[in-house]
């Protein structure tokens, strides 16, 4: 009895979190959010805080700031523009808030993290060791095979994981045990990870990740297993070969090299990872993952 209440709460709070993520720029009144999840507005605040570990306001504020950090990192938009998008009216107010989250100023963060002119960028680099000053021409390792794909929206069953990426296995186990038992892991099922946060921006214990499996219209959410629709549209796609721990490097190349080189900007939607083999019976070096990075339409 008690467990089913717990499940119901999980199910509803997940719905709220997805709603917030999808409407990050809208001012979502508390009443509306509470109603969407069938919580009484009266208790909603407490429930949210209790289950998510921060207040509704803090949660939205943090997500907006983290998105701003990503934009500082990946785009050439001005700090003021990014501040306004994050809901701050002045550069100063944004800087203060940003500093309290990231520990540095927005422009400092940008110059430390900008992927647009990363240290590994291909080109001519000065090397200090050696008897005489030499110039070294690097191509930045092997070339990346990136394709641009249009993805149709996908209906998925998912289990949410909040915490370090190295621990997403538990969410997968829950999801696969439930779906596998019902015969839903056969016949063209796709296994997708939805990554909302950049591990270089968001603290490990707050990283949000959804383990997802594609399902038909008739699948219904229950307890910890929710249902959502993954956003369609244009994505830059690259296959990552090897251990999941190294995914960050491929992300870095995709965002820091391919995007600027091809004049593309990331769209504010989560990244997707399509897992092409089973990490259980596959050597880490042989793992295959398609990374899908959402793209802003070409202007």
């Amino acid at each position: 009895m008690k467990k089913s209440t717990q499940q119901l709460y999980n199910e509803r709070i997940l719905r709220v979190l997805i709603l917030i993520q999808k409407n990050l720029d809208a001012e979502m009144p508390l009443n509306e959010l509470a109603r969407a999840a069938h919580f009484s507005p009266y208790h909603f605040h407490r429930i949210f805080r209790g289950m998510v570990g921060e207040s509704l306001k803090e949660h939205i504020r943090r997500l907006r700031l983290e998105r701003a950090a990503l934009r500082l990192k990946h785009t050439d938009r001005s700090v003021l523009e990014i501040a306004l998008e994050a809901g701050y009216e002045t550069h100063e107010a944004f800087s203060r808030a940003f500093r309290s989250l990231c520990g540095c100023s927005p422009s400092g963060f940008r110059s430390d993290n900008s992927r647009i002119c990363g240290a590994n960028a291909p080109g001519v680099h000065y090397r200090e060791n050696g008897s005489m000053a030499e110039f070294e021409l690097t191509t930045g390792g092997k070339t990346m095979d990136v394709r641009v794909e249009h993805l149709e929206p996908m209906r998925v069953a998912f289990v949410r994981h909040v915490g370090p990426y190295s621990q997403v296995g538990k969410a997968w186990e829950k999801l696969c045990a439930r779906l596998g038992r019902e015969g839903l892991l056969a016949g063209g099922t796709r296994f997708v990870g939805v990554c909302y946060d950049d591990p270089e921006v968001t603290a490990p214990e707050k990283l949000r990740y959804d383990a997802c499996v594609t399902v038909d219209e008739d699948f219904e959410a229950e307890g910890e297993v929710g249902v959502q629709t993954i956003c369609g549209g244009e994505y830059a796609v690259v296959t990552h070969f090897g251990p999941y721990e190294d995914l960050g490097r491929t992300y870095g190349q995709l965002y820091g090299r391919w995007m600027p080189q091809n004049g593309r900007q990331p769209r504010s939607e989560p990244c997707l990872e399509f897992y092409l083999n089973d990490p259980d019976g596959t050597d880490p070096e042989d793992l295959l993952t398609d990374i899908y990075a959402p793209l802003e339409p070409v202007s």
């Binding site: 186990e173 696969c176 045990a177 779906l179 596998g180 038992r181 015969g183 892991l185 056969a186 016949g187």
Partner: peptide, 11 residues
């Protein structure tokens, strides 16, 4: 399909 359904049902 059979292999994963059996495994996950056991799980």
């Amino acid at each position: 399909g059979a292999a994963y359904t059996i495994k996950m049902t056991r799980k």
